[in-house]
Design a protein around this nucleic acid. Structure first.
Lengths: 237, 237
DNA sequence: CCAAAAGTGTTCAACATACACCCATGA
DNA sequence: TCATGGGTGTATGTTGAACACTTTTGG
């Protein structure tokens, strides 16, 4: 190792690096956000995003998955890097860079698996409490990004159970965009992507007639993901 | 300050945090990338992205602007956070997180202002040299992002001089997408946005007839930026 | 039998694409 | 005068938006 390079590195200030996770869920009616009380905040009763420190041997992806797992015990979750927040004053305790990730999980999967180490709660997007530090901005950016992505790709599937009905999917999109959609145009557009496989089974209990279940054609879904679909379905004002 | 919180923070490992900038430029014909030899790399002759360390009192935005200014002496540049790279092995000297920013500048503005402290050179996107560390992946991600954005917004303006012609703009889009576009459809689509203001002046020298200069309607441009435009013009295969 | 949700088709307007000719001018 | 690039219009197909009625079945 050349000495001048080493000196170059050693003369620099080092910082704490953390992960914060914006965890979206859908319960069939509303888009929700999972928040925790971590017990490490100065203001003891503030809700915050789930987060944690990046460890010396971890990549950012590994760290974000680990932290999500610690809370939910879920693996293989849709998780995507959103933005890194680094204002010198964002954390009053000590300067910390936070790499924000956003996650999509369906509330059903999560229900029983919740870790008891955290006080966690789902909040409706309409009724979010005041959040710790700059977590509010993180959430704002995440919802904007979610809308952007969902308008281009059928990303919303990640928030639903494996088997879902078209009306469920429509409710999800309505929740994401905060708008009403026309069911005729919506289902036509969805089905025209050929990404859905109709099952024989019908949903019981919710409506009298019952709606057919569908599942995603995983192979096509992943293939199509990088072609822009301009996916936002027709809306009725 | 509560003692247990302080201890929580102090027990964590700290890391170096750097910025790397993917700087795109356009010379009227080709999309180019600005690379430097920083003289701090282990392999002394490797080209790399322009970069630098984040200082204790700087936000990420401030740091990225400063670093870009150090090289180009330009201010008010389009600069956007792309992604944070943090694999434990990405920098063999010491673990460093790098927040990648991408910048769009027009080569004309830049020409005379270049700092003499760096050995810098524009490279055609087709003929990039091997880059330091994971800078190659950063560039790949940036070009993908640039295409994505440019297909949705008329972001390409940032790469052109203040006064530009429609054929220039078309060449830029052709360079970004690596494809040929139909000039009739292209100009119709562009003009239909009403974001361009036609000037009286014509471009001299390049063609015999001369093409009219246009400038952007800044106010409308910024307003429209958040409405998805689905901007990719028609292509002729 | 009726209330509640599922499911489906048509028409019209807007937009994307493909395509070809005239214009202005410097050499 | 002619070669070069600038500038425009039209016809066609595709896609999105608006809109209403029939079907199923549990209670």
């Amino acid at each position: 190792m050349r000495l001048d390079i080493l000196q170059q590195y050693q003369s620099q200030t080092k910082f704490l690096v953390a992960i914060d996770s914006i965890i979206f869920g859908f319960d069939g009616e509303e888009l929700k956000l999972l928040l925790v009380k971590r017990g490490i905040e100065e203001e003891f009763h503030t809700w915050s995003l789930m987060g944690g420190w990046v460890q010396p041997d971890e990549s950012l992806e590994t760290a974000s998955s680990r932290i999500l797992f610690e809370l939910t015990n879920l693996t293989d979750i849709y998780l995507e890097q959103l933005h890194t927040f680094g204002n010198p004053q964002r954390d009053p305790v000590e300067r910390t860079f936070s790499v924000a990730y956003f996650a999509l999980i369906n509330v059903e999967d999560y229900e029983n698996k919740l870790s008891r180490n955290y006080e966690a709660q789902w909040f409706s997007m309409q009724e979010l409490p005041k959040l710790l530090f700059d977590h509010g901005s993180m959430v704002d950016m995440a919802i904007e990004n979610l809308r952007y992505k969902a308008s281009q790709h059928p990303i919303g599937f990640e928030l639903l159970p494996e088997k879902f009905t078209i009306p469920q999917l429509q409710k999800l999109y309505e929740a994401i965009f905060g708008t009403e959609l026309d069911k005729r145009n919506f289902s036509r557009k969805l089905l025209s992507t050929n990404l859905l496989i109709k099952l024989d089974e019908k949903q019981k209990g919710y409506s009298k007639k019952g709606a057919f279940f569908y599942k995603i054609d995983e192979v096509k879904y992943k293939k199509h993901f990088n072609n822009f679909l301009n996916f936002l379905p027709g809306s009725t004002p």
